[in-house]
Structure formats: C-alpha cells, structure tokens
Simulated scan of single mutants.
Amino acid sequence: MKRILLLVALLMAGIITYTFAYSQGDEKNKPEKGVVIQMNGDLFLKDITDYNNIKEWKFKGDKPVVIDFYADWCGPCRLVAPLMKELAKEYEDKIIIYRVNVDNEKELATALNIQSLPTILFIPRKGEPQAIIGSASKDTFKQAIEEVLLKKPAK
C-alpha cells in the first residue's frame, strides 16, 4: 500500500512539474512588456536580423527596437541603464528595449562594429538603424525614439 501511495505521489508531482514547466515555456517566447530584455546573439538572429549578413538589413520584428550595448565595467553604461528601464515602461506598448553585454557577446558586437560604450542602437520597423554613441539624457533618448522609431516630427 505504501508503494502505491508513493507511486501516485511521484506521478502527481511529475504531472504538476510538467504542467508548470510547459506553461512557463510559452511565456518565455513572448517579449516582456515594460522591461529591458537581456539579449544574446541567438535572440538577435531570431528577433532582429542576421548579423552575419548586415549589408542587406532586413528587420524581423513587429515593433521598433532599442538595443543598449554595454559592459558591466563601463561607468557611463551604468548611468544609461536606469534610463532604459524608465523608457521601457513609458513605451511598453510601442517599442522593445534590449541590452547586450559586449563582453559576453563579442561576435555580435564585432559584427555590428560596436567600438564605444555605451552604444544605443535605434532600429525602426522600416529603414536603417541609427545610433547614439555614449551616454545621453533621457530627453535625448526620448527624442530619438519619437523621431526615429515612432516617426513623429521634432517639435
């Protein structure tokens, strides 16, 4: 009897674990709203473009994107990070904001010719990406989002 109860308990635990893992897996495939998402080379290939063929830029996303290229040791990068979090919340239904640690993603950073940190890349749905190199104010980033990504004219 004890063996049967143990077997049933193990079976139930397995079903619960599988169900929880399956439902969590579905959520991981959807971009989160209002947060800065850590990006790696594979995610860039899947959601942005093939960085091995940058000469022919073909954006794969359905929302404009901001990518913050940074390093943990970079002081100006640490100043930009909280601004990106604020902007992710402000524009949560309009754009997606990613971060790329260049120390961990050297191949991606090299392919995109990232030479200075921070480099903030603005990728519209149509057209060529544009960049801000170095730290900037929140207003400067907002202006770039409005004009480059959301195509609103300057005031």
Score class of each variant (00 low, 15 high):
residue 89 K to T: 15
residue 38 Q to N: 10
residue 61 G to T: 00
residue 34 G to M: 00
residue 68 D to Y: 03
residue 118 P to E: 01
residue 138 K to M: 13
residue 134 G to F: 02
residue 62 D to W: 08
residue 135 S to W: 05
residue 128 E to T: 06
residue 56 E to Q: 14
residue 139 D to F: 02
residue 90 E to P: 00
residue 59 F to R: 06
residue 109 A to P: 05
residue 41 G to R: 03
residue 56 E to I: 10
residue 141 F to V: 06
residue 60 K to D: 00
residue 75 G to C: 08
residue 62 D to G: 10
residue 119 T to F: 00
residue 111 A to E: 04
residue 100 V to K: 01
residue 73 W to K: 06
residue 79 L to T: 06
residue 51 Y to E: 08
residue 107 E to A: 12
residue 77 C to T: 13
residue 122 F to I: 01
residue 103 D to M: 07
residue 105 E to D: 08
residue 132 I to L: 14
residue 140 T to R: 10
residue 83 L to I: 15
residue 54 I to G: 05
residue 131 A to S: 15
residue 102 V to R: 05
residue 44 F to T: 11
residue 102 V to T: 15
residue 46 K to F: 12
residue 84 M to F: 11
residue 37 I to W: 04
residue 38 Q to S: 12
residue 67 I to K: 04
residue 45 L to Y: 07
residue 97 I to T: 11
residue 97 I to N: 09
residue 68 D to H: 13
residue 56 E to T: 13
residue 34 G to A: 04
residue 94 K to C: 06
residue 75 G to S: 13
residue 42 D to Y: 12
residue 93 D to R: 01
residue 141 F to S: 08
residue 136 A to P: 03
residue 138 K to T: 12
residue 133 I to C: 05
residue 130 Q to F: 02
residue 119 T to A: 10
residue 138 K to S: 13
residue 64 P to C: 05
